[in-house]
Simulated assay, not measured.
Amino acid sequence: MSNSSHILPEHDIRPYSVPQLAERWGCSDSMIRKLINLGELKCFRIGALIRIAAAEVERFETTPVPVQQTATTSSVPVAGDRKVIGRKPRKRSPIVRS
């Protein structure tokens, strides 16, 4: 046995929290939660804490997203195995002129 002060084995990598993963991917916390709720990203819970295993992050990052080529558009993401997550339309307030 080694005299390392490291508690986790060398091959074991700490899981990501939602904010850590959002920072890694350059997106919002809510986007990570949306992927979890859609079943695209697997997580586990420790009480109220949500954690995503490093292996799951690697799986998600290395899974290719299919792209469909058409004559009218150069490249459009296709849902394939994954759902395309779009934005909710903005509510526009009517313009009131006096």
Rank of each mutant, 00 (worst) to 15 (best):
Met1Trp: 06
Ala71Phe: 01
Lys42Val: 04
Trp25Asp: 01
Ile95Tyr: 10
Pro9Phe: 05
Ala79Gly: 10
Gly86Pro: 05
Ile13Phe: 09
Gly47Glu: 06
Ala22Met: 04
Met1Cys: 10
Ser75Asn: 10
Asp29Leu: 01
Ser28His: 12
Pro66Gln: 12
Ile50His: 10
Ala79Ser: 09
Gly86Gln: 09
Asn37Asp: 10
Lys88Asn: 11
Ser30Lys: 10
Ala48Tyr: 07
Gln69Met: 08
Glu58Thr: 09
Arg97Pro: 00
Ala48Glu: 04
Pro15Glu: 02
Val65Leu: 12
Gln69Asn: 09
Arg33Ala: 03
Gly80His: 07
Arg24Val: 11
Ala79Pro: 04
Glu58Ile: 06
Leu49Thr: 08
Pro64Asp: 02
Ser98Trp: 00
Ser5Ile: 00
Val84Cys: 08
Leu35Lys: 08
Thr72Asn: 10
Val67Asp: 05
Trp25Leu: 13
Gln69Gly: 04
Ile13Thr: 13
Asn37Glu: 09
Tyr16Thr: 06
Val65His: 11
Gln68Val: 11
Arg92Gly: 14
Val84Phe: 05
Ile85Cys: 12
Gln68His: 11
Ile36His: 01
Asp12Gln: 08
Ile52Gly: 07
Pro77Lys: 06
Arg59Cys: 04
Lys42Glu: 03
Arg87Asp: 11
Gly47Ile: 04
Val18Ala: 05
Gln20Trp: 02
Arg92Tyr: 15
Pro15Gln: 06
Ala79Lys: 09
Asp12Met: 13
Pro89Glu: 12
Arg51Ile: 01
Ser75Thr: 07
Met1Leu: 12
Ile46Asn: 12
Thr63Asp: 08
Gly86Met: 06
Pro9Ile: 09
Ile36Arg: 01
Ser4Thr: 13
Trp25Ile: 01
Ser93Phe: 09
Ser98Asn: 11
Ser5Val: 01
Thr72Trp: 03
Arg92Phe: 14
Arg51Val: 00
Ile85Asp: 06
Glu40His: 15
Val76Lys: 10
Ala79Met: 00
Thr63Glu: 12
Ala54Met: 03
Arg92Gln: 12
Lys91Arg: 15
Arg90Asn: 11
Ser30Tyr: 01
Ser98Glu: 08
Cys43Lys: 14
Ile52Val: 15
Leu49Gly: 08
Gln68Ile: 08
Thr73Trp: 03
Ser75Leu: 07
Phe60Trp: 15
Leu21Ile: 03
Pro77Ala: 12
Ser98Thr: 03
Leu49Trp: 03
Ser74Ala: 07
Leu38Val: 07
Pro64Val: 09
Arg87Gly: 05
Ser98Leu: 04
Val76Thr: 14
Ile36Ala: 02
Val67Leu: 13
Cys27Glu: 00
Ile46Arg: 12
Gly47Gln: 02
Thr73Asp: 08
Arg92Ala: 13
Glu61Ala: 15
His11Phe: 14
Pro94Phe: 09
Pro15Asn: 11
Ser17Tyr: 00
Val76Cys: 06
Val96Cys: 04
Pro15Lys: 05
Cys43Trp: 00
